[in-house]
Design a protein around this nucleic acid. Sequence first.
DNA 1: CATGAATGAGCTTTCATTCAT
DNA 2: TATGAATGAAAGCTCATTCAT
Lengths: 176, 176, 176, 176
Amino acid sequence: MRADARRNRERIVEAALGLFTERGAGVSMEEIAQAAGLGVGTLYRHFPDRRALIEEIAQSTLTVLRDHLRAGAAEQVPRWEVLLSMVRHCAGRPLALLSSLPEASPQSDTRQRLIREIHGLLGDIVEQAQQEGSLRRDLTPEQVVGLLNVAICRPGARADDPLTTVMLDGLKAPAP
Amino acid sequence: MRADARRNRERIVEAALGLFTERGAGVSMEEIAQAAGLGVGTLYRHFPDRRALIEEIAQSTLTVLRDHLRAGAAEQVPRWEVLLSMVRHCAGRPLALLSSLPEASPQSDTRQRLIREIHGLLGDIVEQAQQEGSLRRDLTPEQVVGLLNVAICRPGARADDPLTTVMLDGLKAPAP
Amino acid sequence: MRADARRNRERIVEAALGLFTERGAGVSMEEIAQAAGLGVGTLYRHFPDRRALIEEIAQSTLTVLRDHLRAGAAEQVPRWEVLLSMVRHCAGRPLALLSSLPEASPQSDTRQRLIREIHGLLGDIVEQAQQEGSLRRDLTPEQVVGLLNVAICRPGARADDPLTTVMLDGLKAPAP
Amino acid sequence: MRADARRNRERIVEAALGLFTERGAGVSMEEIAQAAGLGVGTLYRHFPDRRALIEEIAQSTLTVLRDHLRAGAAEQVPRWEVLLSMVRHCAGRPLALLSSLPEASPQSDTRQRLIREIHGLLGDIVEQAQQEGSLRRDLTPEQVVGLLNVAICRPGARADDPLTTVMLDGLKAPAP
DNA sequence: CATGAATGAGCTTTCATTCAT
DNA sequence: TATGAATGAAAGCTCATTCAT
């Protein structure tokens, strides 16, 4: 793939992610193309249809998250710190938004694989955090993942906003 | 208004609320009408356009919430109980959805008044809960309101799901 | 037909004629019914559909015109006076409007008969006016009829407005 | 603008003008598009909505008329000839139709300016024709304009049909 | 018999997608 | 190859007409 083609592809993904985050699922292909400084034709050269574009956004966002988690998993710090780092990473990235896009429903294999990977990594971290005594024990890893998904991956979320703070406090293991 | 007309109106609101909750803001008027067992024309006789329908849903949902809060405010129980009762009341009612509907942006006067009333009532309850020592003190009433809005008024929320539980624990005043 | 039924029927025709004249062909059946102080149902009891209502308006307007022409034909006055009287009668009655209503196109037998009668009467008057030397001779009766139709049977026409005046002057036989 | 796009735009205007002239204001956008050999979408790409299309037709028709009048105003011929030339130009162009289209009511600034210009030019010509003794003096320029509007700018008008002929005769100054 | 609520075909408009330039 | 014009299916909305009250 030529350098300018790759640049165009990235511009499109960026523009689309930005617009979806700001204005929700109703943004038109035309607008996305314009925001990327391109014509619709070019957009369609890179993505056969709307779902392909959304899929791409999902995959790239999830890939970055997975890589972040992999790095965290390998680090020699308390698991609670790893969780915090993930919260900081995700805040304001509307992964949740994707699930609210009707077009996103039938997930691709790649995406499902990424999600499984993430759940796997996060599950381990959660379990270890519970063992190290920093995370409350009455939740399964799946529940923690689901909860974090709603709490931090929403449009406008910030790592230090009240909901995130309260959530993290609620997740801490109670003093013995 | 004739008895059957009133019944149909209610059916429409019910159907619309159900569909919006389940499938988001993209549901077509045709589908709503069908779900209510009616033709589109009937829907439009009751609500001049899509926004009017959404407005109606918003108002009725908010009115019920306000009445619930008024009743709670008058009761002789700990304020923490009142908050819990509100959480139970709201869980699964997608008020938040309404604010995420693009059509909802320019809110009607009535709706704004309802929201102000609710914030007022809730603000008092929050302050009193903080004074009685049940609710953590480092949040303003507005923050608590916003947080509850995201946490409990979302599609699929339940009063006893992990997110709600964790959030309530995070909201409790720390042991002294 | 009961007295009140006849009254309702007349009210409807009146209301419809008024609204068509004022606001053109786009007026809805609902509006007509309301202007007549009735429900749509009642309107439809009197007229099976929109075209029937328009047909009725056409027939009644044309009948009045025919009767006026019959009376004029029988009078002992110059034919030019009879033409003037007809102009005064028609001014502001938008017969022409009817032909501009798309629904009016396939004319009923009754209407065609009325129109033929009117053309017959008017044709005689025109011929006689030409013979008495008051009306220019280079036009056929049909042409005069068509011309008067456009010139005086339009919304807003008045017997003394510029177009009517100029038209009548143009119709006068030139001084010998 | 691409060559084919311009061509299509012109086709649309032509088709719309033709259909409006023939069948009145009720023609659907679908039909107009079809008559132009295009899909509706294309029509809407060129004109954001129905009113924009009508506005365009109005403006282009009025612009041509204004240019015709400007040219006539500059010529060294009797003003009566200029009026005749305008009559010939307008006959059969349903400017009047435009004013009868309900959608046309709130006229754009450009349109109002064009109309004012036309009235200005025509007013001068009328006054001068009255001074040169060819046009009757008992009418104001506005009245002449209004009269010409009804008489010659109607569907089906021709420069030599009876109504036009009679009207021009009626407009001539009477022999002294 | 009067009423006005319900119906649904049809019109306007939007937007994902295709295709000529 | 990039562009943006053309397409047409689908959504919102209106209104002539029917039918339950």
